[in-house]
């Protein structure tokens, strides 16, 4: 695992809260659930839930590394899902639907990227705007009704197993490998780190720096569109607002994992830990049937305590 990345001095010294939180949570839930938490069935559904979050959170790590964030991914997942389902109903087949969803992601990501990298506009505001556009389009096209009746292919994809590994987990693992290479072994990755590390350098870097800056938003949106396709399989329907709020879980996973909103410091594997911590917390609270109102408090406490414990570095959200 990426313990000795060149760009990232001694990541464990920063002790991402996620790693601590994860170990503690797993121990608590495993001890008190009478074997249910660690049952095969639960691990399959838990890992699939985490995988879906990772498809959004891994590329979000790139975005946060550039001192940005992407609030539009949740709304985009709703829109891309509706597009994919409509394409399948229109006889485009699964590959066509996948391409249509990816195309939706590419367009929205390009809009985000262009406005942020070339327009010099703040990512928070731009993606808040495109979030409204995507949510509104998805709602208006469907009149709020879920789209369904497109056959079994997406559902079978979500439930498929590759050996002992659920397909969504395999997809997330492949994406991790790909993004790991991209971030740590290519000039693109070095540029991403540089973009966040030094805004002034970015401004002077010209076209290439801006293209890299824009590309992280295209990456984020494309991965969200891919996740949308799996989500359509999970629910066997495309609901226009199904994923609203996912963007916050993804950002929390990234920052829990030790990636900083400033100074271009980050750790891709930390995001895996962060997403796992969020997934384990929510799943564990459900498996133990904790009082619903206390679950809400627990999510907030995890976010803050893990940060206080692990990420005691200075900083404000400069987005």
């Amino acid at each position: 695992m990426p313990m000795a990345e060149r760009a990232l001095p001694a990541p464990f010294r920063r002790a991402p809260g996620a790693a601590v939180a994860l170990v503690v949570l797993v121990a608590i839930f495993a001890a008190s659930s009478g074997g249910r938490f660690l049952s095969v069935g639960n691990l399959v559904s838990l890992s699939s839930q985490v995988a879906l979050l990772l498809l959004v959170a891994l590329p979000m790590t790139f975005v946060v590394l550039t001192e940005g964030l992407d609030l539009s991914v949740g709304a985009l997942m709703g829109l891309a899902g509706v597009v994919a389902a409509t394409a399948m109903l229109g006889g485009w087949g699964v590959p066509g639907a996948l391409l249509a969803a990816l195309g939706t992601g590419l367009v929205l990501g390009a809009v985000n990227g262009a406005l942020i990298a070339w327009g010099g506009m703040p990512a928070f505001v731009v993606t808040l705007g495109t979030m409204g556009l995507a949510e509104g389009l998805a709602l208006a096209v469907t009149d709020g009704e879920p789209v369904s009746g497109f056959g079994d292919a997406p559902r079978l994809a979500w439930q498929a197993m590759i050996g002992p590994v659920p397909l969504p987990v395999a997809v997330a693992a492949a994406l991790y490998a790909l993004l790991h290479l991209l971030l740590y072994r290519t000039p693109f990755g070095a540029h991403v780190v540089a973009v966040g590390g030094n805004r002034e350098a970015l401004r002077l870097a010209g076209i290439r720096g801006r293209a890299v800056h824009a590309a992280v938003y295209v990456l984020s949106a494309s991965c969200a569109a891919l996740a949308a396709f799996l989500l359509v399989g999970r629910t066997n329907a495309a609901h226009p607002t199904v994923a609203l709020g996912v963007e916050f879980d993804a950002i929390v996973a990234v920052v829990l994992g030790g990636t900083s909103f400033e100074r271009g410091q980050g750790w891709l594997f930390g995001t895996v830990l962060g997403a796992a911590a969020i997934g384990v917390l929510r799943n564990g609270l459900n498996v133990l049937a904790v009082d619903p109102s206390l679950q809400v408090v627990a999510v907030g406490l995890l976010a803050i305590l893990a940060l206080v414990a692990g990420n005691r570095r200075g900083g404000r959200a400069r987005t």
Binding site: L69, V255, L307, N311, R316
Partner: peptide
């Protein structure tokens, strides 16, 4: 405590 504002 210096938690980033977004997360705090």
């Amino acid at each position: 405590v210096r938690v980033p504002a977004f997360l705090a």
